[in-house]
Amino acid sequence: MSFNKFPPKPKYDPNDGPVYLYGLHTVRAALDNPLRVKKELLATPNALSRLNEIGQIGKVKVRETTPKELDRLLGGDAVHQGAALEVEPVSRFGLNDVKQLRLVVVLDQLTDPHNVGAILRTACAFGADAVITTARHSPQETGVMAKAASGALDLVPMIEVTNLASAIETLKERGLIVLGFDSDAPAPLRPRTDDRPMAVVLGAEGKGLRQRTRELCDEMVRLDMPGPIKSLNVSNAAAIALFAATAGRQE
Rank of each mutant, 00 (worst) to 15 (best):
K207Y: 05
L223V: 15
K5H: 07
K147G: 07
R210T: 15
H114N: 11
E205H: 02
I119N: 00
S2T: 12
M1Y: 05
A118C: 03
K61C: 01
A148D: 05
A83H: 02
E86C: 09
L179T: 14
S91H: 08
R190P: 00
A146G: 09
D16V: 02
A204R: 12
P10S: 12
V178N: 02
T213E: 09
R249F: 14
C124P: 00
E160A: 05
N33Y: 03
L209R: 04
L35T: 08
A239F: 03
M198C: 15
P113A: 10
C217W: 06
V156N: 02
V116M: 11
N96H: 13
E69R: 09
D184G: 01
G75P: 04
T122R: 00
Q100Y: 08
H25S: 14
L74G: 11
G94P: 00
I132W: 08
V178C: 13
A130N: 02
L73S: 08
P226Y: 11
N46M: 10
G180H: 04
P14I: 12
L70H: 02
V144A: 09
V98Y: 11
N4V: 11
T213M: 07
I159Y: 08
T133G: 09
T111M: 12
L179F: 04
C217A: 11
L73W: 03
L70Y: 01
K39I: 15
M158A: 03
P191Y: 13
A29E: 09
A241R: 01
T122V: 15
S150T: 12
T162W: 10
D194C: 05
G55F: 00
P18S: 15
L103P: 00
T65M: 05
Q56S: 14
G227H: 04
G203P: 04
S231Y: 11
V106D: 09
A125R: 00
T44E: 06
N46K: 15
R50Y: 01
R92M: 14
T162F: 10
H114L: 13
V161C: 05
G203S: 07
G76K: 06
P7K: 08
R72E: 15
P7N: 13
V201E: 11
A187Q: 12
A148E: 08
V62Q: 09
E205M: 06
T213R: 01
G82K: 07
D77G: 04
